[in-house]
Nucleic acid binder design. Structure first.
Lengths: 144, 144
DNA sequence: CTAAATAAGATATGAATTATCTTTATTATT
DNA sequence: AATAATAAAGATAATTCATATCTTATTTAG
């Protein structure tokens, strides 16, 4: 019942990117350093984000990553789903055949309701929300 | 971002128990059969539930499990936490030192808020809720 | 006292998460 | 044009956790 380290790193990395001047090409090395995360792992994560289309990637010297979608359009739900896959609290919510009562019991309805609430909450936040506000800073002032 | 199979089995097993006449000693074999779950795995799960104190266990012939707490006092949150451990959406919510900004950023507040909402929801359901209602039946009528 | 039934506890397997290492592509420099 | 440097892409590895199964201990009935 938690998001993965990878999703956490992805969100932090994207927030870091969003705080740079629009159009800046960002390197994994810098993103990792500024978010205090392992660079090689971050590299794989940003590879996945690039494949999803929300960011663009450029290989070679002076390569790096830029936004392809607007930070305000990238919801936390979207990021989590790109990295961790679909949000499914219990498998009966998405696969009725895995439910002995064909998804027609109160337990099923509970999970479906809670999942709906959760995804709604995650959809209500975007990367931009954390990049614009002072409190969105991911590192103490001393480090920045 | 999901509950484990073990938690799902635990909930279903406890609901099955709650549907039996009060005080009935239930065997893992029956619980597993009636909830369509692997008996040996269910055995381990009920061992954990017994250790937590919400059920009692009796070894040997005519042994088995009975409730130690009232089904209406056993919340879904409690069951999930016994089996899967504490609900922590992101580690910064519970361990501020894992947050680069000492848990003082908007991202942290988001996770803390969503987690609060989630645990509140899980606390609002009890095992009894699914045992009394007809729709709470975990198996189609044909199988019962 | 023996056998059967039952939970408890130890061990095993497999998948997912969390990484690291190697390769490929691009650019800048000479 | 060749070479070196830089950066992402892709392949591989290690670790952890979920999901079980197998063996042992305990109790009761006959």
């Amino acid at each position: 019942m938690n998001i993965s380290r990878a999703s956490d790193y992805a969100i932090r990395g994207l927030v870091y990117m969003a705080k740079q001047p629009a159009g800046t090409v960002c390197y994994v090395k810098d993103i990792a350093k500024n978010t205090n995360s392992p660079a090689s792992f971050m590299s794989k994560i940003f590879q996945t984000l690039a494949k999803s289309g929300i960011i663009d990637s450029f290989i070679g010297t002076k390569g790096g990553f830029t936004f392809n979608a607007r930070p305000e359009d990238i919801t936390i739900k979207k990021v989590v789903e790109i990295i961790d896959g679909p949000i499914v609290l219990n498998r009966c919510v998405v696969n009725k055949s895995s439910c002995q009562n064909a998804g027609n019991c109160d337990v099923h309805f509970m999970w479906a309701d809670i999942q709906k609430m959760l995804t709604k909450a995650l959809s209500s936040y975007s990367i931009a929300d954390f990049a614009t506000d002072k409190k969105g800073n991911m590192l103490p002032e001393a480090v920045q």
